[in-house]
């Protein structure tokens, strides 16, 4: 598969996360090459992302010196950087939205996407490649692309929960698991900032961001690239479906409190406890759908007949 540069805005968001995680101080140099190495891309897209962040006031640019952090990392947490979606991002989100909403068939061609979304072939191709990287779609026969499994139904969600019950608690028990204090500290701050806002003022996206950060942290720390990849892919799928699906906000907030408990256990080195708590955490999310409805379901009566 040909590697294609991702949109600057997406990369810019990743740079913001990186800056937060590294706990960089105001005035610290933000160099292109280490970022290019970290994200596995060339310096060109990194340069585009840094220019965008400088435009937003997050970075400062000085000729012959390059970029430096213009504000304190705490300020970044308190006022998330608003970055406009690119045309690619808009198309990516529109295709995912329509797939999850059952508006698109299992198979689709570039031409169909171009026609439906009035996009150019180049942009559609880049979006399809990106979706392929996220495990959302793969090449089919001829000109068609085939959507992979997504969390677009209750049965798919059940399967996802069962899969995550297998992999995430195991990831915590991996011999190579290394707790990352900077990362955990950053995630704790994000959780606390969300709790401080209160349920009434929270946007659903904020809860989902915090949730994804926690589960991806488990992936980042586990030291097993295959488990990490599987966890990240599940997080991506959940993150995408949560944008459109219904979810009980009270349960989501309770779930975020559970993250903090699990992180306490990991920090204390109680890995078995953390693993068990993570399994219960996933199971609780799975279990909040009721199976019976009394006036509509008379099983005893039906058996007696």
């Amino acid at each position: 598969m040909v590697a294609i540069g991702k949109p600057h805005t997406e990369l810019a968001r990743k740079v913001v996360d990186y800056v937060r995680q590294q706990n960089m101080q105001e005035g610290a140099r933000v160099r292109e090459q280490p970022l290019a190495d970290h994200f596995g891309v060339s310096r060109t897209p990194i340069r585009g992302a840094l220019a965008l962040l400088a435009d937003r006031g997050l970075l400062r640019y000085a000729p012959n010196q390059g970029y430096s952090l213009a504000i304190a990392p705490e300020s970044i947490t308190d006022a998330p950087v608003k970055l406009p979606p690119t045309e690619e991002e808009q198309l990516f989100l529109a295709v995912v939205r329509d797939r999850l909403a059952h508006r698109l068939d299992d198979h689709i061609t570039v031409t169909e996407i171009m026609r439906r979304y009035a996009s150019s072939r180049a942009i559609v191709s880049r979006v399809l490649v990106r979706m392929g990287e996220d495990g959302l779609i793969e090449r089919g026969d001829g000109q068609s692309w085939v959507f992979g499994p997504t969390l677009d139904s209750l049965s798919a969600m059940e399967e996802s929960y069962r899969f995550r019950e297998l992999i995430e608690p195991s990831a915590v028990l991996e011999p190579g698991f290394r707790f990352d204090p900077h990362l955990f500290s950053h995630i704790r701050r994000s959780h606390q900032a969300m709790f401080d806002l209160g349920i009434g003022a929270l946007e659903a996206r904020q809860i989902y961001d915090v949730d994804a950060a926690f589960h991806n942290a488990v992936a980042n720390c586990c030291g097993n690239r295959f488990l990490a990849q599987a966890i990240r892919q599940q997080t991506t799928l959940r993150r995408l479906s949560e944008n459109t699906g219904g979810a009980n906000r009270h349960r989501l907030l309770a779930s975020c409190h559970e993250h903090l408990t699990i992180m306490d256990m990991i920090e204390a080195g109680d890995m078995q406890l953390a693993s068990d708590a993570l399994r219960r955490h996933i199971n609780a999310a799975k279990g909040h759908r009721p199976r019976v409805s009394l006036r509509g379901i008379p099983p005893l009566a039906s058996r007696r007949q």
Partner: peptide, 25 residues
């Protein structure tokens, strides 16, 4: 609540006590 309805109230942060009132399926 019925065991089959468990989770509904927990999702709102309430403690649940299951009561068996339908056959286990």
């Amino acid at each position: 609540c019925d065991a089959g309805f468990a989770g509904t109230f927990e999702a709102y942060g309430f403690t649940e006590y299951p009561v068996t009132m339908s056959p286990d399926m």
